[in-house]
Every structure is written in C-alpha cells, then in structure tokens.
C-alpha cells in the first residue's frame, strides 16, 4: 500500500499522457484530459500545502519566541491580510487585491531583482579575470553583449548592436541548442524512469 499503490498511480497517470499523444482516440484522450485536470487540482492543493507549511513554521517560531519572531508576526499578518482580501473580495482587476499586488508585491519583487545588478557587478569584478582562453571568451562576450545593448556601444562601433545579435543567434544559439538537446534527452529518460517505477526518490523514505 505504501509503495506499490503510488507506483501504480504514477504509471497509469504518466502512460495516459504519453499514449494519448500517440493515439488521440477518445478511449485514451478522454481519461488523459480528466487526469490532466486532476493533476492541476492536486497541484493547487500542493501550493496551499506549501503556504500552510510556511504559516505553521512561522506560528511555531512566534509561539516559542524564537529567532526573529517579531518578523514572523509581520509575515503571518501579511499572509492573512492578502488571503482575507483575495478570498473574501475576489481577484478582479481594480479591486483591493489588485491594488495590493500592484503597490506592494510588484514594487518589492522588481526591487529585489534590481538589487542583483549591484551584486552581479561585484561578483563579476572578482570572477572576470582573464586567466584562461575560456575565461577570456566569457569576459569578452559578456562585455560585447552589454555594450551592444546601450547607446554608447553604438557610438563606439555602429555595427556593435548587429554584432551582438549575431553572437546571440549563432555561437550562443549553437551552444544553447546542444544544452537543450542534452536536457531534453535527460528529461525524457528521467520521466520514463519515474513512470516505470525505476526512479522512486519522490516517494521519500520507505517508512
């Protein structure tokens, strides 16, 4: 029950998806569509489980007055506030949920990501030392791509934006294509191993 049933469920669900691609007959396509919807619904529960876990751990920290417990109170209040607004009032555009998203979440998210501009620059200063052919290629390409995207690059050489595009579309794309083909082969083999029950690490321990 603990191991065999999950392996059978994974096999049936996975094979339905694969078989429905090769045979769109209603015998396979119908159950595959149902299974697809079930997977989406269960995934929604998984998101809720993740958030419930955050709330549980934070509440535990507050209860025991653990490290940074005051911030956990803020976290729980923010979480509760957003849940209350979204679940009670809906997520329609122009509502309070939308206002919270546009004025609280979006500014913080983009500022968090923009902070990376500073850290990436300091990391580059330390890492970008042209000590080998490989490091030099990485450094030169990065500099060309950065210069090719700003007006000063075009001032230096009028062909720089077009040359940047060529780098993106030829040597960059060639390597990316190799990575994508390798990753696709890996994804296919791992997916098949999971469906066939050869890879069971997602079940956790055997207890």
């Amino acid at each position: 029950m603990k191991t065999e049933v999950p392996v059978v469920i994974a096999f049936v669900a996975g094979m339905l998806m694969i078989v429905s691609l090769f045979s769109p007959h209603p015998v396979f396509a119908g159950p595959a569509a149902v299974m697809r919807n079930w997977a989406i619904v269960i995934t929604a529960f998984a998101y809720v489980l993740g958030v419930a876990n955050i709330a549980r751990i934070s509440a535990g920290t507050v209860r025991t007055r653990g490290r940074d417990w005051r911030y956990k109170v803020v976290l729980l209040a923010s979480l509760g506030g957003m849940l209350g607004i979204g679940l009670a009032g809906g997520i329609q555009g122009g509502g309070l949920f939308d206002w919270s998203y546009m004025n609280v979440m979006v500014p913080m998210q983009s500022t968090m990501f923009s902070l990376l501009a500073f850290f990436i620059a300091s990391a580059a200063y330390r890492a970008f030392r042209a000590r080998s052919v490989e490091a030099t290629l990485l450094l030169v390409t990065a500099v060309i791509v950065m210069l090719g995207r700003v007006p000063v690059g075009e001032r230096l050489w009028s062909g720089l934006p077009a040359f940047t595009e060529w780098i993106m579309e030829v040597p960059n794309m060639a390597a990316k294509r190799g990575i994508m083909i390798g990753a696709a082969l890996g994804a296919i083999s791992t997916g098949l191993k999971m469906i066939l029950g050869l890879e069971r690490s997602y079940l956790g321990s055997d207890k």
């Binding site: 998806m17 997977a39 696709a184 994804a187």
Partner: peptide
C-alpha cells in the same frame, strides 16, 4: 505515507507531460 498517492498522481502526470514536452518542444524541434 498517504500523501504519496497524491504526489504520485502529480509526478506521474507531470513526468508524462515532461516526456511529451521534451520530445516535441525541445528534442525534435532543436
């Protein structure tokens, strides 16, 4: 251990999606 049933349904379905997606979207296309 009961949560494994739900996890298996998700993993099986998404592994099926991944096989199809990687085959059609990445491998053959590239």
């Amino acid at each position: 251990w009961l949560s494994r049933w739900a996890i298996a349904a998700m993993v099986g379905s998404y592994a099926g999606f991944a096989v199809i997606g990687a085959l059609q979207g990445d491998l053959i296309a590239q």
